[in-house]
Design a protein around this nucleic acid. Structure first.
Length: 703
DNA sequence: CCTGAGACTTGGGCGTAAACAT
DNA sequence: ATGTTTACGCCCAAGTCTCAGG
């Protein structure tokens, strides 16, 4: 603001001398103490241990040939060996045939796993599920030309929300004209007015309805759909009584819960039929699942955090609002009777099957494929390959941005400090946001008020305290000791600014990403999150897994590693309502088990005595006792493990990192190496999404 | 540059089905 | 078999990033 010159103002000389060639030894650990290594030494950390082959490769690569990695060849290398198939379409046909035998192989699996004993939950069921899906190794196919996402696409179009069913006449709406009467005066509403009213009535016991913005927005939009008569009468939301409506919906939901098995089955079957009809598409010769083939129903907008638009009416979407995307030569989806599509297009450079524009924020919404599809899987795979590439040039990049902390140019310093945060704290990039969205920030959009500098805190020097609302208005709070040079730079950036000023006033995500792309092809800010998450998982697994431990203990290790990542990425959740209760419950069980063990021990003692001078029969009894005791003890540890796991997990959400940040091949390799059945860590959805990794990665995969 | 549209990934919450305990 | 607890999968909002056009 104050000075336009890009040159930095007189830099305090001290800074320059401060650092006698800092090494990489001071990367801050932000995820508990144990993780330092993951940032400390990107490569030699593992040397003292088993010198894994691929580890060496990585070291070498990063040391001498980063530049080569920048060529687009990197990706291709991997696929190189396989296909020299020319015509995609025909080759697919063949592949299918080829891989049918492979399916049979899977069937044998349980035998191999016998070592891990009974644990495998209903392997029969699982097989069936997986066998129902077409299995083909898409990752061995040739890639499509740049920008082309498919050559054939056929589907039946999206499913629309069911039409509004007016309330039965006995469910009334009341309005208190004088603001006096207890119930208000009975009032009948036009259908549309009633429909919108039900949206509100359904949310009556939700927090939203206590928020002013929500109520104001809702009321404003509600009045828009009212008839002029209604509008005249209904002038104050506070005078509206939705209680009967609310009760009606509650009752409805009770009824639904109380349905008999048969009734539920009917509904389920009907739904399944719908899914079979509309839930799949044909893409490049394969039948694949669609992710969200249902158009979003109308309702009230539920923005998160302090969203200025919360409570606004999300209008019903009609076929006339919907764009269809499919192959020209495919069977074009039929719009519902009496309707027309807004447009039918044939754009094979995008992946969506249908789209419409939502009225609250004006954003385009899409119908897209399920993550199990080739289209999504390939992209996911590519994402992790980019992250691995970053792993091999991270040293250079770190060296560079550290150098940039000393730059004469303010914009470069800011860029370098921001990058440092993104790297070590896994912050998000932080695009600018409009006024009409919740006020949340990421790295580039941090404001002065979001950080506090402490020369010293809790015995540590140069501590930066972050406190801001990030994505989804989740609070990010972290006290991080940083390097002195970073600290000094921050002081400089904050000089003469108000709390509401941007911390990095010469930086935004575009600038940052442009720079990153120059450092490495395909590099953007979010790649650091992927890289750091996956790297941390690998490192933590290595550190925490004891090959000799029991299966539950191994799983605990895995969860802990997963948790370290979730902490790093700040994946939080609200404490489940039932947490305390279920915790007490568990504690009770543990005490009970302990008592049982005590009791059993006593008995065992006696039995042993008896056995000593007794006959074979008594020996058998004692033996049995011993077995029982062992079993009990095992159960106890299992419970205790569960307890710590759950306690540690109560505010941390593991799902997001597992699904979006952790290279599945790390997990797969770990499972294979330590003989952990994959379904212990990956549920059915995970297994479908990560099928490529499950098939691709051996026990020795290294990220 | 700046802006906004567009496309696609990432995110927590919540209802419900399934698993488990009783 | 039935009630309770847990986990899954859906939902859809909220990010990231690219690109076109002024």
């Amino acid at each position: 603001m104050c000075d336009e010159s890009p040159e930095i103002k007189e830099e305090p000389v001290e800074i320059k001398e401060e650092e006698p060639e800092a090494e990489f030894d001071s990367f801050v650990s932000h995820v508990e103490t144990t993780q330092e290594e993951s940032y400390l030494k990107t490569e030699d950390a593992s040397d003292d241990d088993v010198p894994l082959v691929s580890n060496n490769t990585r070291t070498k690569r990063s040391a001498e040939s980063e530049d080569d990695d920048n060529t687009p060849l990197a990706k291709k290398k991997i696929k190189k060996e396989k296909g020299k198939k020319k015509r995609k379409v025909d080759s697919e046909e063949e592949e299918e045939e080829d891989f049918k035998p492979a399916k049979k192989k899977t069937v044998k699996k349980p035998k191999v796993q016998n070592e891990t004993q009974e644990e495998t939950t209903s392997p029969r069921k699982r097989k069936k599920e997986e066998d129902e899906h077409e299995v083909w190794k898409w990752w061995e196919e040739e890639k499509k030309p740049d920008g082309v996402k498919w050559s054939y696409l056929e589907h039946k179009g999206p499913v629309f929300a069911p039409a509004y069913e007016p309330l039965p006449p006995n469910v009334k709406f009341f309005y208190d004209e004088n603001y006096l009467l207890f119930l208000g005066k009975e009032m009948s509403l036009s259908e549309e007015t009633e429909e919108v009213a039900t949206f509100y009535a359904r949310m009556l016991d939700h927090d939203y309805t206590t928020k002013e913005a929500f109520n104001t927005n809702f009321f404003k939009d509600w009045r828009k759909v009212m008839t002029s008569k209604e509008k005249e009468k209904i002038t104050d939301l506070k005078k509206c009584n939705f209680k009967q409506m609310h009760a009606y919906f509650q009752q409805k939901s009770e009824e639904r819960k109380a349905m008999t098995k048969e009734e539920k089955k009917v509904i389920k079957d009907k739904n399944e039929e719908l899914v079979n009809e509309y839930g799949f598409c044909i893409i490049d010769g394969h039948k694949e699942k669609i992710g969200n083939f249902r158009i979003e129903p109308p309702g009230l907008f539920r923005g998160r955090g302090e969203h200025p638009k919360m409570g606004m009416l999300k209008k019903r979407v009609n076929p006339e609002d919907v764009l269809i995307n499919c192959s020209k030569d495919s069977k074009i989806p039929e719009p519902p009777p009496g309707h027309k599509w807004k447009e039918i297009r044939h754009d094979n450079t995008v992946t969506w099957l249908a789209s419409w524009t939502e009225n609250v924020q004006g954003q385009v919404k899409y119908v897209m494929l399920n993550p199990s599809s080739k289209l999504k899987g390939e992209k996911d795979w590519q994402k992790y390959e980019t992250a691995r590439k970053l792993a091999s040039s991270i040293d250079k990049i770190r060296r560079e941005y550290r150098e940039d902390w000393k730059s004469k140019e303010m914009r470069i310093r800011q860029r370098a400090v921001a990058l440092y945060f993104i790297d070590i704290l896994a912050l998000r990039a932080g695009n600018e946001k409009d006024e009409d969205q919740a006020d949340t920030v990421g790295c580039c959009s941090l404001r002065v008020e979001h950080i506090t500098l402490h020369n010293e805190k809790d015995g540590k020097e140069f501590v930066v305290a972050f406190d801001f609302l990030g994505k989804d208005s989740i609070r990010y709070y972290n006290e991080v000791p940083v390097e002195k040079r970073v600290f000094k730079n921050l002081q400089l950036f904050m000089e003469g600014k108000k709390g509401s000023d941007d911390l990095f006033d010469r930086l935004n995500t575009t600038i940052l990403n442009k720079h990153l792309n120059e450092l490495m092809e395909g590099l953007t800010a979010k790649v650091f999150r992927t890289y750091n998450a996956s790297w941390t998982l690998q490192q933590q697994l290595k550190e925490l897994t004891d090959p000799d431990s029991s299966l539950p203990e191994k799983l605990l290790s895995y969860n802990r590693a997963n948790r370290a990542v979730a902490i790093l990425c700040n994946h939080q959740r609200s404490i489940p309502k039932s947490h305390q209760k279920s915790m007490d419950n568990l504690k009770g069980k543990i005490t009970a088990k302990r008592e049982a063990i005590e009791e059993c021990e006593k008995q065992y003692k006696y039995a042993k005595k008896d056995a000593k001078n007794g006959s074979a029969k008594e020996k058998i009894v004692a033996d049995k006792m011993k077995k029982k005791l062992e079993k009990l003890k095992e159960q106890l540890t299992k419970l205790e493990v569960q307890e710590t796991d759950r306690e540690e997990n109560k505010t941390i959400a593991l799902g997001t990192s597992k699904l979006n940040y952790l290279d599945p091949r790390i997990t797969v390799a770990w499972c294979k190496k330590f003989n952990v059945p994959i379904e212990k860590v990956y549920n059915k959805t995970h297994r479908q999404k990560f099928r490529w990794a499950i098939d691709m990665a051996g026990p020795d995969f290294v990220f």
